[in-house]
Design a protein around this nucleic acid. Sequence first.
DNA 1: ACACAAAGAGAACCAAGGGAGAACATAGCA
DNA 2: TGCTATGTTCTCCCTTGGTTCTCTTTGTGT
Lengths: 201, 201
Amino acid sequence: MSQLTRRQQEIYAYLRDHADDFDHPPTHDELCRALGLASRGSLHKHVQALISAGLVEPMARGQRGIRLAASPVEPEAGIPFLGRIAAGRPIEAVPQPEYMQVPDELLGSKPCYVLQVCGDSMIEDGILDGDRVVIEQCDRADNGDIVVALVDGEAATLKRIEQTPGQVILHPANASMTAQRYLPDQVQIQGVLKGLLRKYP
Amino acid sequence: MSQLTRRQQEIYAYLRDHADDFDHPPTHDELCRALGLASRGSLHKHVQALISAGLVEPMARGQRGIRLAASPVEPEAGIPFLGRIAAGRPIEAVPQPEYMQVPDELLGSKPCYVLQVCGDSMIEDGILDGDRVVIEQCDRADNGDIVVALVDGEAATLKRIEQTPGQVILHPANASMTAQRYLPDQVQIQGVLKGLLRKYP
DNA sequence: ACACAAAGAGAACCAAGGGAGAACATAGCA
DNA sequence: TGCTATGTTCTCCCTTGGTTCTCTTTGTGT
């Protein structure tokens, strides 16, 4: 898991320990006063770091107040197995996530989850039907990364990404399929591939 | 590695014994104060010596705080990583096995070990150069299993096996290679493939 | 006495952490 | 429609911490 800086740890500890002192989730201003900060902007930077570490709930549109993430990541619990991903269908979620033990080396610095691959669209990159992939939550990627991308808000797919100013191309690794081109607005990156696990019978 | 000087041993002992006193890894300045030093530069020299002795984690880019090198995973907690296997060469053993954390699901019922694959001979089965494979120790296999086979007592290779009464065929999964045929006596099975781990950068 | 290694002080440099504050965006409200 | 509270983004700046020097002191072996 990513290393929090000292200040970030202090702020998280404060939120955790004083959650009950507030009858509503504290705003940036209130937190600033409590922590002795004079600038909302400074606090905001730290809160963003806590969000990307998965310790604080991301701000929903129009949401007020900073609240802790419902289920802080338990190191001992492992990585959540969320469901299956097939090219072009929404992620098929398992009703209640199981937690898997995954080698640390396969994890990124941000929170991660595991999906099971369904289909052969990445077979030429050695990703087979039934493999489990470790995905690091992330909303941007470098060209050439393999990503979980949500297209038009509903169809999730695992593909190699190529981003140009005008369009986003999702490349399968399967000669019988063709690359898909979209407008940047249509494609939302949900994570990048960090590791792969395969079980042989 | 070179012998530690007396002061270096003292500093290492201090780090080891007081690791729990700090909620963050101590900085050079903090350590200086704790050790009665007035200069970061002096301490830095000692810490560098400890790093090159492998007792302290090397500083990653931008990392802050001095932390002890992670103690290797205890044998009972992981699977030994024994070395690299390339088609047709003996297994290249690492001098001293590291132990890796491997998901239980990838293990068999018998003792297992991990090898790193070297080469593309199984690429069409989705086993790429650099992948790590989990091998269950075993001296026999079913036809179609992928096995670690020792040929003529020296050349180890990872291939799909086909056993007939008169001969043993080792099939690569690479169109540019051909299957190898041997007498049953020439081939000794050293384990069967149970799992695969791949790390993406 | 001399050479040498270990150890420390301190200065200088650079990158990352952290904070201040302005400016902007958006929601809720009078 | 403005006003206020709040979240967001930005730039500027200072501080902190790791690194690299040089110089000095001290202890030890020949």
